[in-house]
């Protein structure tokens, strides 16, 4: 665990060594505000809740999270620093985890910066804080799942632009797996259980369940296991490139 902590700390600090952190946080907050107030009509609705805020998170993450994740491994490969990392007396699992946790913590920080919106609603009215907490949790978990996908994709290439584009695409697929576009494609020929399994992988479905305030353990486990699966594949890719 010590190694994970040291690696994560270096990685987290790296976001702030360049304007990356500032640019990301400002853009995230700007877009979150724009969506919430302009398109979501937070005030006009006359309801004290954060539905308009959270309902746009999947869209925000679709582009912003792969932007954070794209550099995780691709940049190390491009810089050659992967050689430093891989020759340290550290388990591969700890490397993957350290990088991921730093990026996830950074996403958490961005989310934390949005709490003034929560405070505003609480000041103006009497929102259901339980629902808001569950929504934040769901949003954070979804960000983690997107990040794990992005980290995996980043391990496949040393080109960050490719890592970003492919990352967005894969995240897009997972976001909308439960939607007719994808299901119609399957339902014509695939057995019913397969269609239902695929549909159950939709991030949107699980996130919407959580953001309604229904804190179902299954939704939480869904995101956590998605993270574990993609990080495991991430490790396999790194290991495979070592032997290639």
């Amino acid at each position: 665990m010590r190694a994970v902590r040291i690696l994560a700390r270096r990685e987290f600090a790296a976001y702030f060594a360049t304007p990356l952190a500032a640019v990301f946080l400002v853009i995230f907050l700007f877009l979150a505000g724009l969506f919430t107030f302009e398109f979501g009509g937070l005030f006009e609705r006359g309801q004290a809740d954060l539905r308009p805020f959270f309902q746009f998170h999947p869209w925000l993450y679709l582009f912003l999270v792969p932007a954070i994740a794209m550099r995780l491994w691709a940049e190390e490969r491009r810089l050659g620093t992967i050689e430093l990392l891989m020759t340290l007396p550290v388990r591969l699992r700890d490397l993957v985890l350290g990088k991921f946790l730093a990026a996830w913590a950074f996403c958490g920080l961005a989310l934390l910066c949005t709490t003034p919106i929560w405070a505003t609603v609480a000041w103006l009215g009497d929102p259901d804080h339980g629902v808001i907490v569950a929504s934040y949790l769901g949003s954070f978990l979804m960000a983690g799942a997107f990040l794990a996908i992005g980290s995996f994709v980043s391990a496949l290439t040393k080109n960050q632009v490719i890592a970003f584009i492919v990352g967005v695409l894969v995240c897009f697929v997972f976001l909308f797996l439960g939607y007719p576009v994808f299901l119609d494609f399957l339902s014509g020929w695939a057995p019913r259980f397969l269609v239902e399994t695929v549909a159950s992988w939709s991030f949107l479905t699980h996130f919407q369940a959580l953001s309604r305030g229904v804190l179902d353990l299954r939704d939480v486990l869904f995101f956590l296991s998605t993270i574990v699966v993609f990080l495991a594949m991430n490790g396999l890719v790194i290991d495979w490139k070592k032997a290639a």
């Binding site: 810089l79 620093t81 050689e83 430093l84």
Partner: peptide, 10 residues
Amino acid sequence: PEGAPVWPDM
């Protein structure tokens, strides 16, 4: 390592 790779922003 070859070329002494480092993280440039550190």
